[in-house]
Write a protein that binds this DNA or RNA. Structure first.
Lengths: 216, 216
DNA sequence: ACCTCTATGTATAAAAG
DNA sequence: TCTTTTATACATAGAGG
């Protein structure tokens, strides 16, 4: 597609494969969403990376959509591997293993929240900081995308509203279904969300655009 | 996208919508397949047209893939009536409850890392951002305390070293036991940790003190 | 991993058959 | 609805941080 056309065959170079995976995954998710919105279709997309990581999109409830799929397909049990479960000792060890894992996860969660940090070494704190910075950055980027879409959708609605002189139908864009554009009551919502749009900058830029969107 | 750029919103004209659906559906299915082949990923795509027609693609067995999906998601019953699974209710209530909790924790963890954010609402993203900011702030504060103590301890050792002309005993401050103050080999460590000391300000101050402490 | 940049390959909107 | 055509928008390979 760019410097060179590629053959559709497995990319051997692992790094290149990973990069391509990231790019194409995004593209595919975007196009799935566009199809759903443009054509009023119900779309579900499930992607497992080669390393087993899950990415998914669903234009509506994934659960409902998969349920609907089951009706149209011959698949009637997704639990085809119902292990006979040689109970007792297996059960016992499973349960304690899971309990330990739970404790681990809980500790990890509280440390990400900034609690229970005393036992950590400086390197571990450093790692935690980097992790949090990355997470914060990605959360902000996602939020910004969301807001950008909302603003675009809002503008579109206002334009429609002005040119039609009447209320548009309930949104079908899928982006803004929870935003109320209603001349009779908008602006009265007591709840608002402060949105800092700064993901494109580093997390330290306070040139961030601050918005308070009425929300409900 | 040709003669004109289109907005991503529902296409009102039914005929045009249908045409676009055909074209984009094919494109999407093709790209899903390409992703699966190029990147060795496992991909499932399910599309219901507005009229309820089903189109799907799966890079491997749809059944297996959806089964795998169930393990990664919190969806455990695609049927309204999940069969009690002729198993004993003890098993069901204990192990799966823990399994669910684990899945929850895992989801929460990946969201804190900034992954799997697509399903979240703006408010949830906002909450996540605030949580991460708080966590980052506390981690940085803890790290700064640690560094401050280390520096103080280091200085103390150097003073002792200079005035005594010999090595001090192993530190008793408890803060720096893992730092080597050894004239014969210090400075040869290839590892160092970059430390940003900025927790006293808000996380957005980049007046942070940057240090590179030799570390081992 | 993730971003940016750019050249180029692809997808597709619109029109016409 | 499907095909073809064409102009244009979009996606992305490859390279470099």
């Amino acid at each position: 597609m760019a410097r060179q056309k590629i053959k559709i065959r497995r990319i051997d170079n692992i790094a290149a494969r990973q990069v391509t995976f990231s790019k194409r995954r995004r593209g595919l998710l975007k196009k799935a969403q566009e199809l759903a919105i443009l054509c009023d279709a119900d779309v579900a997309l499930i992607i497992f990376s080669a390393t087993g990581k899950l990415f998914d999109y669903s234009s509506s409830s994934m659960q409902e959509l998969l349920g609907k799929y089951k009706l149209h397909s011959n698949i009637n049990n997704l639990d085809k591997v119902e292990e006979p479960l040689l109970d007792l000792q297996l059960h016992e060890s499973d349960e304690t293993r899971m309990g330990k894992e739970l404790l681990d996860k809980n500790l990890e969660l509280s440390q990400l929240r900034g609690e229970d940090l005393q036992g950590l070494t400086l390197e571990e704190l450093q790692r935690l900081e980097t992790l949090l910075e990355g997470g914060l950055h990605r959360v902000r980027r996602t939020k910004d995308e969301r807001i950008t879409n909302m603003i675009a959708s809002l503008e579109q609605k206002l334009i429609t509203l002005n040119s039609n002189g009447k209320r548009p139908r309930t949104s079908t864009t899928g982006e803004c279904d929870n935003m109320v554009i209603n001349p009779e009551d908008h602006g009265q919502s007591s709840d608002s969300v402060i949105c800092s749009c700064n993901s494109l900058e580093d997390d330290c830029s306070d040139t961030s655009l601050k918005l308070a969107l009425p929300f409900n």
